[in-house]
Design a protein around this nucleic acid. Sequence first.
DNA 1: GACGATACAACACGACTGTGCTATAAAAAA
DNA 2: TTTTTTATAGCACAGTCGTGTTGTATCGTC
Lengths: 188, 188
Amino acid sequence: MPKVVDHQARRRQLSEALWRVVSRDGVEAVSVRNVAAEAGCSPGALRHYFPEQSDLVASALALVSDRFAARIAALDIPGPPVEVIQAYCEQMIPLDEERRIEAEVWFGFVTRARHDPSLDALTRRVHQDLRAFLAQLLPYINAAPTEVDRLHALIDGFTVHLLLYPDHLSPDTVRAELRTHLRSIANP
Amino acid sequence: MPKVVDHQARRRQLSEALWRVVSRDGVEAVSVRNVAAEAGCSPGALRHYFPEQSDLVASALALVSDRFAARIAALDIPGPPVEVIQAYCEQMIPLDEERRIEAEVWFGFVTRARHDPSLDALTRRVHQDLRAFLAQLLPYINAAPTEVDRLHALIDGFTVHLLLYPDHLSPDTVRAELRTHLRSIANP
DNA sequence: GACGATACAACACGACTGTGCTATAAAAAA
DNA sequence: TTTTTTATAGCACAGTCGTGTTGTATCGTC
């Protein structure tokens, strides 16, 4: 048997290299050569793990989704229901550097996904999962089920604003406004 | 003097050709050649009006902003303040085909603008103008000035969701939820 | 009608793209 | 040690990109 490497770990490294390229130079700078250079390997090596470019992008997007799911699973917040839901919702918003890069990658490629069938399925599924997740949260604060779309839009709106105009909106402001919103839709 | 053409009109035609390319094939399909072909002219002719590609994109983005401003100026809604503000806010949301294409172009290039200084200034200015416009609206329904960020995020969140997942969210739902929001922050 | 400015077309160039193909290095198995 | 399988590297190819340059047709003015 030949040299053995952890394929899964290698793919994650390469996906994170793509993240760094997006964060530094934007989505339009993502190419096989650029990502390989960022990861410190040859384009041929990258193509050994991702035969086509869409495989690489899909993996990078899936990693965003996985990281979010891991954060949610690791959360163990005590306190009143509104604070628990606040903590969950905050995991979807780029309030720190880690979440900022993830959101940058996600929103950088989500527009491309509409014209790329291989990415389209993934992004639609994640969107629907998030909506379902939020819908599942609402009963804990006795909010009306119809509030899910407004909450979801608010979260993604804050996400876009934090990404594009970080100097016009502080994470603390977003946290406070999110809390205001959750309290306003909660029925004690 | 030579053949005279209406430069402003020609630029608008070319900008709208760019819109159609974005709407059909996405932002990544925008190139000097593709837009020229869509407009039915040669790349050389396009470059006569837009020496560099960023000039073309900047013009297309400015046209979005101008169209929005024209719609706002043309509005003459009678009725209670909440309904008037509702009508204003709806002009920012892709609730019909015209606004959908505009929003598609805007959100398609706004991520690129963060890495392109010539586009950055325009997009930031528009964002700030919209925020100021919303802030100016709030007193008419006696809403707290602090509500501007939440309203702005909600509007852009709905915009993104309508753009990316139009089959998960209907324009009517958005209209209804926006009205719910405006009523919730209004103090009679 | 001749002139000159403008509109437009066409090509050239270098750089970049994704992707196929081939060669080498390395490590596990024989 | 030899064999075999994998990991990585590197090159080739056709296509597209933005943009510079050069030529030509067309119209308003003299």
